[in-house]
Design a protein around this nucleic acid. Structure first.
Ligand SMILES: [Mn+2]
Ligand SMILES: [Mn+2]
Ligand SMILES: [Mn+2]
Ligand SMILES: [Mn+2]
Lengths: 219, 219
DNA sequence: CCAGAGAGTTAGTCATGCCTAACAGCTCAG
DNA sequence: CTGAGCTGTTAGGCATGACTAACTCTCTGG
């Protein structure tokens, strides 16, 4: 009756893919989770049976309120774990996602509380992602992709969204970490090259190279 | 192809039940693991197929060398985890077994190393159990049940073996923890009552009440 | 000697999650 | 307008790991 690891990963995927308010497609879930489309169809029916998602054949899926709360509990565990792994076990921020992806399903409430306490109730994980509170509330912010800044605009890096550890490693080397001040110097859209000031360094990159870096625009 | 959580719990159970060198019976495993006897028969065949146990129908099971090494890796993770949960997360020693029982199956090598390093390569867990080293070597000691001490004999508590958190809590209150000096004052075998000095306190108990407390005899 | 208790196995079933094959419906390019 | 390419479902199967029912075998007490 409790949710399995697999259930929880489906819920998280539905949550992430549905952030823009849209219904989540079978195919998108299959790609995200690395399973076949029939597996997704079958699982959506079972999650609907448990009251965690709204699903009708061919119409995609959304989380119910119960499903959203269950998802927030998993996301909370995931992000607390990442923070813990970096702060306490001193793993690199590029490595912790894979660990947290597994352990998020196996932490008791007691351990979650102990970690939360030890870390002093952190509000963000190492990648800048907000940690849902114990009631399932998630802070939201107005962030834009770094590549959306116009030439001359400034901002501050707030979140880095990727699960690829190689990209995280590179961004750390480049100084593209939460808190970093950035300024868009110039953009050659046709060539897909932009010049960005990151802290006190200059960076030339394509859109793809910083895809996943989100900034808060300077007012 | 890697061992599942369930596989690992079977291996551990075979290891513990076979410590005395005997072959482990189907029924004993079924009771230990809380599953039916046919489930055990079926699993023993599969573990034998993986080369982890020696099994022939009706003759019980023993670990192969490969199975023993796999078991030592799980026991190492379990005991490092318990130590970590007590030392770092400050959970009570009576609570950590249940947590470790789950997490032992989901820790990466990287996390095991990080925990081992953080703790300074501990040699024992909070209950006094030796932690296998990374090569699967397990320290052995000559311990006897506290109840085996004869009147007048002294010793030191070295290990407490139980998975019941209530018993652990009680033993902690009584001072029956690894390192505690004990002395058998007197025994009334017919009534099954013994009087034991624990540190500077006096304890009257039946055999059952201290079953699982192991001591090193004073020479 | 024989009945019953235990130990252990076989057979058959179920739930969970995954897969491939096949097909239905929609949209869009040619 | 027609076929290719998507999206999505149904059908059927497999692996893991659990269960109950029914059986065999061995041992022991009366
Ligand atoms: Mn996960
Ligand atoms: Mn993160
Ligand atoms: Mn376990
Ligand atoms: Mn222990």
């Amino acid at each position: 009756m409790p949710n399995s690891s697999v259930n929880e990963d489906y819920l998280k995927a539905i949550f992430y893919l549905g952030r823009d308010g849209s219904r989540v497609q079978t195919t998108a879930l299959a790609r995200q989770l690395g399973v076949s489309k029939p597996s997704v169809t079958s699982m959506l029916k079972r999650l609907a049976g448990k009251g965690l998602v709204d699903y009708s054949s061919g119409q995609g899926a959304t989380l119910t309120e119960e499903g959203r709360l269950a998802t927030m509990r998993v996301v909370r565990r995931h992000r607390l774990l990442e923070t813990f792994l970096v702060e306490v076990l001193h793993l690199d921020w590029s490595e912790v996602h894979a660990e947290a992806e597994v352990l998020e399903h196996h932490l008791s409430a007691r351990m979650v509380d102990a970690i939360d306490r030890l870390l002093g109730h952190p509000s963000e994980d190492p990648h800048g992602h907000p940690i849902p509170d114990a009631q399932g509330r998630l802070r939201t912010r107005e962030l834009v992709p770094l590549g959306d800044l116009a030439a001359g605009e400034r901002g501050t890096v707030r979140e880095v969204r990727t699960a690829q550890s190689g990209r995280l490693q590179r961004w750390k080397e480049l100084g593209l970490v939460p808190g970093a001040a950035v300024a868009m110097r110039s953009k050659q859209d046709l060539e897909d090259v932009m010049h960005v000031r990151v802290g006190d360094r200059e960076l030339a990159t394509g859109t793809e190279g910083v895809d996943g870096v989100f900034v808060e625009r300077e007012e």
